[in-house]
Amino acid sequence: MITEPAPAKINLALHVRARRADGYHELETLFAFVADGDVLTFAPGPASFAVTGPFADSLAGEGDNLVLRAARGFADAFGVAAEGAWVLDKRLPVASGIGGGSADAAAALRALARLHGVGLDDPRLFAVADALGSDVPACLLGRAALGTGRGEQLVPLDDLPPLPALLVNPLVAVSTGPVFRAWDGVDRGPIAEGATLARALAGRNDLEPPARSIAPVIGAVVARLQATGPLIARMSGSGATCFALYEEEAARTAAVAAIRAAAPDWWCLETRLA
C-alpha cells in the first residue's frame, strides 16, 4: 500500500490580469503549501474508491472523482495498469479555495509515479496534471512557486520560512466559475518583485471582492483573522477558505482560540507553511 499526503495549497496573492479567449483567465499567483491536508492511499488490485474522513459526505454520489481521472490519465500517458483500491481521507472542506480536489489528483499521480518508477519531473506527468485542472500542476510540484498563465507555468520559490498558519472556512461552498465570472475585469497590476513574503504582503487576491459578493461571510472571516494581529490575512483562491500567517506559534494558538469562541461552527486548521 502507498500512502501519499495531499496538502492544502494557499494563494498568498492572486492577481487576475485578463480574461482569455479560451475562457480562462491570465493569472499571477504566489502558491504556498501547508503541512496538513487530505491523505490518499492506494493498493494495486481490483478497482475501488472509498472516501472517509470528516468531509466524506461532501463527495457522496460524486461519480468521477479527480483521483480516478488522474489514475486514468496516468495509465494512458505511461501505458501501464493503474487500477487498484483508492481510499481518500477527506480532511479538507470541498469547494473551498485550498486546492482539495487538485491536491488529491496530484497525490494520485505521485503515488502512481512512485509505484511505476516515474520521476516527478517527467514532462508526461506534468501534462497529465495540466489536463486535470489549473491548480493540479502546482499541487504536483507541492512547494512554493510563482504561477503564471492559468497558474500552470511555475517558478519554484525557496525563501518562505515555515511560518505558523491558520486556515478558516465558514463551511460555505463557493464554486470557482461564478467567482471568476463576477470579477470586474480591471487589471490592477502585477505581483511585485522581491522576497516572497514581501511580495505577498504587497499583493492582493482579486477574487476576494467577487467571492464576498457571493458569500458575504468571507468578509467576516477575514476581519476576524485580521483582528488577531497576523503578518497577513487574506482569502485563498476563489474562497471561501481564508488564511493568516503568524510569526510565532503562540500567536496562532491564541488566534484560533478566539475564533473558535466567537464562531464555533467555522472550520479551523492550525498548521504551518511546508
Rank of each mutant, 00 (worst) to 15 (best):
S175H: 12
G142P: 10
G194H: 07
P162F: 00
A198N: 11
G142H: 09
G142Q: 14
V174S: 02
A211Y: 06
G185T: 04
A200G: 12
D135F: 00
G177V: 12
A165I: 10
R150T: 05
I214H: 12
L197T: 01
G177R: 14
A107W: 13
V186N: 10
C139E: 15
A202K: 04
G149S: 03
V174F: 00
A108H: 07
L157C: 05
P178Y: 12
L120A: 12
P178A: 06
D187I: 07
C139H: 09
W183T: 01
D135H: 02
G147Y: 05
A211I: 02
G185I: 01
T196M: 09
L163Y: 12
A165D: 13
F126C: 04
D187P: 11
V186Y: 02
G194C: 09
T176C: 01
G149P: 13
L154G: 03
L167P: 06
I191C: 12
L141W: 02
P210C: 11
L201H: 07
L154I: 01
R212C: 12
V174R: 01
R212W: 02
S134V: 05
A107G: 06
D158R: 14
L125C: 04
G185M: 14
L197H: 10
C139L: 11
A144W: 08
R124N: 12
L132S: 05
P156K: 05
A131H: 03
L140M: 06
L120R: 07
L109N: 09
E152T: 00
T176A: 15
L201I: 15
A192D: 15
P170K: 02
P170D: 09
L163V: 06
A106G: 05
N169I: 00
A129Q: 13
A145S: 08
G189H: 02
Q153I: 09
L171K: 04
P164Y: 00
A113W: 14
D130L: 14
P123M: 04
F180Q: 06
A111W: 08
A138N: 08
V174N: 03
A127F: 11
V168R: 02
A202P: 11
A173M: 14
E152V: 00
F126W: 15
L140H: 09
G147R: 05
A211M: 07
